[in-house]
Write a protein that binds this DNA or RNA. Structure first.
Length: 651
RNA sequence: GCUGAUGUAGCUCAGUCGGUAGAGCACUUCCUUGGUAAGGAAGAGGUCACCGGUUCAAGUCCGGUCAUCAGCUCCA
């Protein structure tokens, strides 16, 4: 072993230390503050405990809370502290899994005690106390067998034993982290001691299934988030408050966009006039764009004979998340069953096969805003983003194999165009592939899947998309490219999607006549840039906080006369804008201008036109922009011009 | 569907020990005619989610149902 080791810091500087130096020593040699903030260290890119000796030359980086890895380690350690606190307060609790998550951590606990919200405060206090005790966290490595022994005798942790015997059955050596009397099976790394934990908030408590398996026991999951300082926690809580104000369910009601009524049924949104404007503008926008790209519109019924969905495979695969079939009995006692349309595709396939297709006719791009109904589990319903009745901007592209990759690219391009226009920049793209270990979930043969996934990848590469791969996320008929965005609370939702399908053409025996005069199988692309109009607008509401761009705003201009003298002129301005197709409202109540402005601001009307005696005499208007204030005085022509430009540019 | 929490006026919420329902905003009417985020007064508005139980008496206590929320599971 070398007596000295050379470590290279992220800035490229190399330093020499005695072998066995720890990350903490190095941090201390760099600065006191860094040593204080240090949580862990990466050695040649691998995260490691701060107090582990470094015995060879290495690239190292000190990890603090500001580092993404730092948060993960911090929160993971916080989950251990949570477990220790629970163990001290509620003896007999057994621990399942306790990872760091994107925003904090959780621990799954099996306990004879039923945790309540008041317990959470108690546990928080105990966690902070454990922090003040500054308990050293010690890593111990041992053979797997010995760990099983440890968790069956020294500690009674049946869940850890199960993990050791099952998930880790091929791992010969495992590590245990000791923290006072508490110990947990964990690969680490962890904080050197518990003193870094200065602020903690246990946010909620819910049920989870052990190992995510509904047939196993339910556990109590406690969620929380922790920080090295009280100030950071306050900031986090304030950000959460802000996010809540953006909640589309809250804004949807406040701005009169949509409603949900028990009298209609849960999960069945009703579009109010203002929300309907937003939706209709978006639909027009996409229809126009699709017209340019060679799509042809169709309309199909809202229900269909159940045989149709048996044939497509939707019925057998998804019967548990559909409304039950409607059964119709005719005079002769013959029964027919109809299903509320869960999908538009089968109808479109029938349109395809309604006439003989030539290879020259392809690609055929059928498009429809098709409303579908799915009986989502009651606990899943969530405003507009998870509903039981919703409208897909659904198209099916029927093409030849030589056109496929081009067509996928076109669909990706359209989806990106839609997202860019609406200002979504933080999108995750996922290639959703099949899970080879779960063949029962999918239709079609292995060859077909291989080809489909190859095509999808090729298109994604060609379009220069940065993507993540989601194994097991494919639909039953083919792989997908999914566009995923987050809501105000950070939850992920799939919006746009492009899907390749070699299975349905077989099921529906679709064909076209090739140049050789023989029938050939087309390939289908399912695609929906918005995904669901409901979900998209739900996320859009949160994305914009209800401040829609001018072209989408339900009311674009509020005309606000200051006194009654100005009413007549104000009405003429309203009529002028109205004739030009601007959505305009005139406020002639006998309220002061300040109040009228306030109400227009609160209802997020993009422009206010303020009219007093001066404007009336000069034939001008005073313009005010929502959230910005006074823009200045201008003529009516200038006003029209300004509004038109902004609407056309969709800015 | 599962676990937990919540459910009072259109909205946000108060309602003590079980004793006959309250505020602010919004709404209606009247007064007020004003210059860039809340003028004043009066009025109207309730099957306390629903069903049942305990009680002389239930918004309040108990049981059930439904809905909403958080998470889990699921998502063509």
């Amino acid at each position: 072993m070398n007596a000295q080791v050379t470590v290279t810091l992220p800035d490229g500087e190399s330093r020499s230390f005695p072998a066995g130096v720890t990350g903490y020593d190095i941090a201390q040699s760099i600065g006191k503050k860094l040593a204080k903030d240090a949580l862990a260290v990466t050695v040649n890119g691998t995260a490691t405990d701060l107090n582990l000796p470094i015995t060879e030359d290495a690239r190292i980086e000190i990890v603090t809370f500001d580092h993404p890895l730092g948060k993960e380690i911090f929160w993971h350690s916080a989950s251990h502290i949570l477990a220790q606190a629970v163990e001290e307060l509620f003896p007999g609790s057994r621990f399942g899994a306790g990872p760091a998550i994107e925003q904090g951590f959780y621990y799954d606990i099996a306990s004879p005690h039923r945790f309540t919200e008041t317990d959470l405060e108690l546990i928080e206090q105990k966690m902070l106390e454990i922090g003040r005790r500054a308990i050293t966290v010690r890593r111990e490595e041992m053979p797997r067998e010995q760990a099983i022994e440890f968790f069956s005798t020294k500690r009674e942790d049946p869940y850890k034993v199960e993990i050791l015997q099952d998930t880790l059955k091929d791992t010969p050596r495992v590590s245990i982290y000791h923290q006072g009397d508490f110990a947990d099976l964990c690969s680490g790394p962890h904080l050197p001691d518990t003193s870094k934990l200065r602020a903690v908030k246990l946010t909620n408590i819910s049920a989870s299934f052990w190992r995510g398996d509904p047939s196993r026991e339910t556990m109590q999951r406690i969620y929380g988030i922790a920080f090295p300082s009280e100030k950071l926690l306050k900031k986090h809580l304030a950000a959460l408050e802000e996010a809540k104000k953006r909640d589309h369910r809250k804004l949807g009601a406040e701005l009169g966009l949509f409603m949900l009524s028990q009298d209609v049924g849960s999960g069945l949104p009703i579009w109010l006039p203002k929300g309907a404007i937003v939706r209709s503008e978006l639909e027009t926008f996409l229809k126009e764009e699709q017209k340019k790209r060679g799509y042809v519109p169709v309309y199909t019924p809202h229900i269909g004979n159940i045989e149709l969905y048996k044939r497509s495979g939707h019925y057998p695969y998804y019967s548990d998340s559909q409304f039950p079939p409607l059964t119709y009995t005719d005079d002769l006692g013959r029964e027919e069953q109809y299903l509320l349309k869960p999908m538009n595709c089968p109808h479109h396939h029938l349109i395809y096969s309604s006439e003989l297709r030539s290879y020259r006719d392809l690609p055929l791009r059928l498009t429809e805003f098709g409303t579908v109904y799915r009986h989502e589990q009651s606990g899943e319903l969530n405003g507009l983003v998870r509903a039981r009745g919703f409208t897909q901007d659904d198209s099916h592209i029927y093409c030849r194999p030589d056109q496929l990759v081009d067509e996928i690219c076109n669909a990706i391009d359209l989806t990106r165009f839609v997202f860019a226009t609406l200002g979504f920049d933080d999108i995750q793209v996922r290639l959703s592939l099949h899970d080879p270990d779960n063949p029962g979930k999918y239709g079609g043969t292995g060859d077909v899947w291989e080809q489909a996934e190859k095509d999808v990848r090729e298109a994604a590469e060609r379009m220069n998309i940065e993507y993540v791969v989601g194994i097991g996320e494919a639909s039953f008929y083919g792989p997908k490219i999914d566009f995923i965005v987050r809501d105000a609370l950070g939850r992920k939702w799939q919006l746009g999607t492009v899907q390749v399908d070699y299975v349905m053409p077989e099921r529906f025996d679709l064909s076209y006549i090739g140049p050789d005069g023989q029938p050939h199988r087309p390939i289908i692309i399912h695609r929906a840039p918005f995904g669901s109009m409901e979900r998209f607008i739900g996320v859009l509401i949160e994305h914009t906080a209800g401040n829609f761009p001018l072209w989408l705003a339900p009311v674009q201009v509020a005309v606000l006369p200051i006194t009654e003298d100005a009413h007549e002129y104000a009405a003429s301005v309203r009529d002028l804008l109205h004739r030009e197709g601007i959505r305009v409202k005139l406020d002639t109540r006998s309220e002061k201008i300040g109040k009228k402005i306030r109400e227009a601001e609160v209802s997020k009307v993009p422009y206010m036109v303020i009219i007093g005696q001066k404007e009336r005499e000069d034939g001008t208007v005073s313009l005010r922009r929502h959230r910005q204030g006074d823009v200045g005085t201008m003529t009516l022509d200038q006003l029209k011009e300004k509004l038109f430009t902004e609407i056309t540019e969709k800015s």
